[in-house]
Amino acid sequence: DFYKILGVPRSASIKDIKKAYRKLALQLHPDRNPDDPQAQEKFQDLGAAYEVLSDSEKRKQYD
Rank of each mutant, 00 (worst) to 15 (best):
K18A: 11
K42Y: 02
A49V: 04
A48F: 08
G7E: 09
S11V: 06
L24N: 05
K60V: 09
R59M: 01
E57G: 14
L53T: 00
P30Y: 02
R22V: 12
S56R: 13
V8I: 08
L53M: 05
K58C: 09
D1V: 02
S11G: 15
R22P: 03
E57C: 07
K15P: 11
Q44F: 13
I17T: 02
A12C: 10
D31Y: 07
L46T: 02
A49S: 03
L53S: 01
K18G: 09
K19V: 12
Y62R: 02
K19G: 15
D55I: 04
L46S: 01
N33L: 06
P9R: 10
D36C: 10
R32F: 05
A39L: 06
L26A: 15
L28A: 07
K42L: 07
K42W: 05
P30V: 03
D45H: 10
Q38K: 10
I17S: 02
S54G: 07
S56E: 14
A48T: 12
S11F: 05
V52M: 06
I17F: 00
D1N: 13
K58A: 09
D35H: 09
I5R: 06
R22A: 11
P30L: 04
K15L: 13
D35Y: 08
R22F: 09
P34S: 10
A49P: 00
D1M: 04
L28G: 05
L53W: 03
Y50N: 04
D31T: 12
S11P: 01
E41F: 04
D1G: 06
Y50L: 08
G47P: 03
Y21K: 04
P34N: 13
Q44S: 12
P30A: 06
K42I: 07
Y21S: 02
E41D: 07
G47M: 14
P9Y: 03
R10M: 10
E41N: 10
E41I: 14
S11A: 08
L28M: 05
Q44T: 13
E51R: 08
L46E: 00
V8L: 08
K4D: 05
K19T: 12
I5Y: 07
R10V: 14
L24D: 04
K42H: 11
A48V: 13
D55K: 07
Q44M: 10
V52D: 01
R10K: 14
A25V: 13
R22I: 10
